[in-house]
Amino acid sequence: MHPNSDFMHRCELVDLTRVAQGCFRLKLYAPALTGAEPGQFVHLRAGSSTDPLLRRPFSIHYVDQKAGEIWLLIRVVGPATSALSRLRPGAELDLLGPLGNTFPAREEAAAAMLVAGGIGLAPLYFLARRRLEAGLAFDLLLGGAEGSSLPGDAFFDCAGLKPMLATEDGSRGFKGTVVDLLKQRLESGEKPSRIHACGPVPMLARVVDLGKIYAVPVHISLESLMACAVGACLGCVFPFKINGMLEYRRVCRDGPVFNGEEAHFNFV
C-alpha cells in the first residue's frame, strides 16, 4: 500500500532563471532523478487546484549529478507553464518520472546532428552535453522565429556548446528556419551518422524528409497532450506506418523518441 518513491517525487525548486523571452530554466533538487537519460521526461503538477487539472510533461533538460539537480527548460504557452514561471526558489513541485525512452546512445565515428526547433532545445541540450562529456562528435543546430526567443550566447558558452543558430528574421545566425539550415549543410556534402530532432511536428516532418533524401537515419522526439503519461489511457498516441499498416503508438510509453521514418506525418 505504499506509493513507490522511485517514481513519485516532491522536489524543491532551487533556481529559476529567465533565459530568453518567455523561456525559463528551472533547477530542481531531485537526487532520485539524476539517473535520467536524454530524451526522458517528467510529468509535473503545476499547483494543487483542479484548474488546470492535469499534470504537464516536460523533457529533462539536464542532470547535474554532483549537485543532485535536474533542470527543466520551459516556454510559457498557457496556464500551467505560466504558473511555473512565477514560482520562487523554495517552492515544492510534485512530479512523476523519469518517464519515456531515450535517444539511442550509440558511439559513432561520424558526427551526429542535433536539430532543435524552439523549445525542442530542452532535451537536445542534455544530449549535446552528454556527447561532449563522452567525447563524441556532434553539431547542434537551433532555430527560432526571432533572436530574442532563443537563449543568449552565455547560456551555451558556459556549457562548452557552440550551436549554429537559425532565425527567421535573420537577427541571429543563419536567416531562415533550422530546416533550411540543415538542408544547406546536407547539400554542401556533410554526412552525419544520424540526426536527432525535436521541435514542432511540421518541422520534424521536414527533417525526416531530408533524412530520407540524404540517407541519414533520423530520430525524432515527439510532443503530445498527455493525461496519464504512463501508458494507461491511450490519449497521447501518434500515427505510425509499420509494414504499410497504420498503427497508433503512445508517445509517453513507446516514445517520446521514435524512428522518424516510421512516423506517419501525412496522416496528421
Binding site: 484548474d51 487539472l53 503530445s224 497532450l225 489511457c233 491511450l234 490519449g235 497521447c236 498516441v237 500515427p239
Partner: peptide, 14 residues
C-alpha cells in the same frame, strides 16, 4: 485502432 489524434483536451476542471 481507435480514433485519430488529438484524443485529449483539457476543459475547466475536466
Amino acid at each position: 485502432l481507435g480514433n485519430p489524434p488529438p484524443r485529449l483536451v483539457e476543459t475547466p476542471s475536466g
